[in-house]
């Protein structure tokens, strides 16, 4: 399983969109990293999110594959990830932060 943490603002994403995104993240992880996603969906409580000191509309999606990947592949995957996220949610690219890490050192 590939750890995947999604941090979203309260009320920002409907239950239907969340289900769709979970499905797409799982398919993305399986295709890109050969294993399904272990999704930790975290909601920032109302009035608890700030970006540049203002109420935030940003989501953060962070994935940690089990093996390192080269930077060209990482960039391509990040664009794909943020692309399907914005298409589903209607957020702009300025409202989504995607992270694909290398594995934690042993």
């Amino acid at each position: 399983m590939i750890p995947c943490t999604c941090i979203v603002q309260d009320g920002q994403i409907s239950a239907e969109s969340e289900a769709t995104l979970r499905s797409k993240l799982d398919a993305f992880s399986t295709k890109a990293f050969g294993s399904s996603a272990e999704i930790n969906w975290v909601t920032v409580p109302a009035a608890g999110g700030f970006t540049a000191s203002k109420p935030s509309t940003s989501s953060i999606v962070s994935i940690r594959p089990s093996a390192p990947i080269d930077q060209e592949t990482r960039a391509t995957l990040l664009h794909e990830l943020c692309g399907f996220w914005t298409a589903e949610t209607g957020q702009t690219l300025n409202e989504i932060v995607g992270v694909i890490s290398d594995p934690m050192p042993a």
């Binding site: 700030f50 935030s56 953060i60």
Partner: peptide, 13 residues
């Protein structure tokens, strides 16, 4: 513009 600050209570993560 890059700085995000999110607040939680008793968050298991």
């Amino acid at each position: 513009i890059f700085v995000h600050a999110f607040f939680f209570e008793d968050a298991p993560h």
